[in-house]
Design a protein around this nucleic acid. Structure first.
Length: 275
DNA sequence: CACGAGACCTGTTCGC
DNA sequence: TGCGAACAGGTCTCGT
């Protein structure tokens, strides 16, 4: 489930608390349960277990699709993969079926990392840049202007969608928001980046940012049984709307495969030749 | 440098 | 009802 908007909403919930869980700030870690040690990317599970004990959570942030937890001596990073989700629950509540990694706090609350497909990963490092260093800019940051996008596109000649999903190019965009942003921009997912006009780059910038902001505004997208609480799935304009009428022109939304990912677009509003 | 295929995982849904 | 295929929010590595 987790692309930039979903991770952002999860981070906010952990930082500020929700109706049924307290903020994590200031909580001290008592111990961890690693039911599936493969979750721990770095260091080894045994070292992770030893080093994290006694650390206090000082903040909860997001960078790209990573959740970032600054601790006293280390930084813990969590990538939710395809099916990951985090929740804060009291220690006496029933554990979920896929909660492979659990961090217990001294006050009887715990942070539970649920991950059915086991693509998620946890890092505990001294320098967060060792994990985050290769990420591209934050698309919603003030410094990410249309000009900045244009200069990063310069000299590139790739299909648009795979480039948008390349985390080194822009951080946080995944399959849903790539499709939704391209629709808003009126650009075909296979459009070559070296054929974009200045005006189209501006549309791309606006469209991607609008899609991401809409996702955050609606608390992210909840599909299937995975992430709960979001409402953006009800506002998809193309994603998983194969065969349904385009909201702009009524043409049937088409599904193709791009870079091995299901890709949805309106063949009328997003023409490959640029119209 | 760009791109496709395969790997890593498991669950749900759909067609026959 | 059962069974295999297709599909799912991501990313890494390898070969061309």
């Amino acid at each position: 489930m987790p692309e930039l908007p979903e991770v952002e909403c999860i981070a906010q919930g952990l930082r500020c608390g929700t109706h049924d869980s307290p903020p994590l700030l200031g909580k001290r870690i008592a111990r961890v349960s690693l039911r599936w040690p493969g979750h721990i990317a770095q260091p080894s599970p045994s070292t992770f277990r030893r080093r994290i004990r006694g650390q206090t959570i000082l903040d909860v942030r997001r960078r790209g699709k990573y959740l970032v937890f600054p601790l006293d001596e280390y930084t813990m990073l969590i990538h939710l993969g395809m099916s990951g989700d985090l929740s804060v629950a009291p220690s006496d509540s029933a554990p979920g079926r896929f909660e492979h990694t659990v961090i217990f706090f001294e006050d009887q609350w715990e942070l539970r990392f649920s991950d059915a497909r086991k693509f998620g990963r946890v890092f505990l490092v001294r320098d967060p840049q060792s994990v985050l260093g290769k990420l591209g800019p934050e698309p919603l940051s003030k410094s990410f202007t249309a000009k900045e996008l244009a200069s990063r596109l310069a000299g590139r000649r790739r299909a648009l969608k795979p480039l948008l999903m390349d985390q080194r190019f822009i951080a946080g965009v995944g399959n849903i928001y790539a499709d939704e942003g391209l629709f808003r921009a009126g650009l075909h997912p296979l459009r070559r980046t070296d054929s974009l006009q200045e005006e189209e780059i501006r549309s791309l910038w606006k469209g991607m940012r609008a899609a991401l902001r809409a996702g955050i505004r609606h608390s992210g997208a909840s599909i299937d049984w995975v992430y709960r609480g979001g409402g953006f799935q009800n506002r998809f304009r193309v994603y998983q709307r194969t065969g349904e009428p385009c909201f702009k022109c009524k043409t049937a939304i088409q599904r193709i495969v791009v870079a091995q990912r299901g890709t949805h677009f309106c063949p009328q509003c997003q023409r490959e030749d640029g119209k």
